[in-house]
Amino acid sequence: MPESTPKQSQERFLQLYQPVHESLLRFCEAMTRHPELAKELVSEVVLEALENLHKLRDEAAFLGFLFGIARNCHRRKFRRKARETDLPDQVLHRADQNPGPERSAEVALLYEALAKLPEKQQEALLLFEVSGFSLEEIRKIQGGSLSGVKLRLKRGREKLKKLLGLLEPATTG
């Protein structure tokens, strides 16, 4: 980012951020599985991104920058939560996967299956299916090549189907 006054930085940040606000919110909710926690995470991500905006050299990389912060913030929060509650990570993680009363069993099963995927695959699926990003945008967020993103999505879907018991039965005759 070119040298600018703090006020200009704020304005520029808002311009860059506005188009992805909804996507980030949805992504955060899918990650935290709780609307209030999602809002908290979004606030944290926004403030951290704003404070570190001067480190962003190319505005085209804003998506990767923002979602990278979101990923790190979520990891930190999860670790902090585990420390605060003094519960074993595994128990906490499992408990978090369980849906609230308002969620359908399908969503609960999907969350559980998603949690079993490698982090990158899970993230790619959420960015594509929940945040509504294109393959190219996911490439910008996750880095790597376009075919890498496609492969991640394909493998993620296959694993999900397997975990959800949706695999097609072997065709006979």
């Binding site: 704020q10 940040f13 808002l14 951020y17 506005q18 606000h21 919110l25 949805r26 955060c28 909710e29 899918a30 609307p35 209030e36 999602a38 809002k39 979004v42 606030s43 926004v46 403030l47 704003l50 308002e102 969620r103 359908s104 399908e106 969503v107 099963l109 999907l110 969350y111 299916e129 929940v130 999900l160 959800l164």
Partner: peptide, 24 residues
């Protein structure tokens, strides 16, 4: 359909103005 269900279950509501205020 699973993902559709997931999308429809998302209910966090945070208007952009809220973020704007935070930034400003």
């Amino acid at each position: 359909s699973y993902f559709k269900e997931l999308r429809s279950s998302l209910e966090a509501d945070m208007p952009f103005e809220e973020v704007k205020g935070l930034v400003q």
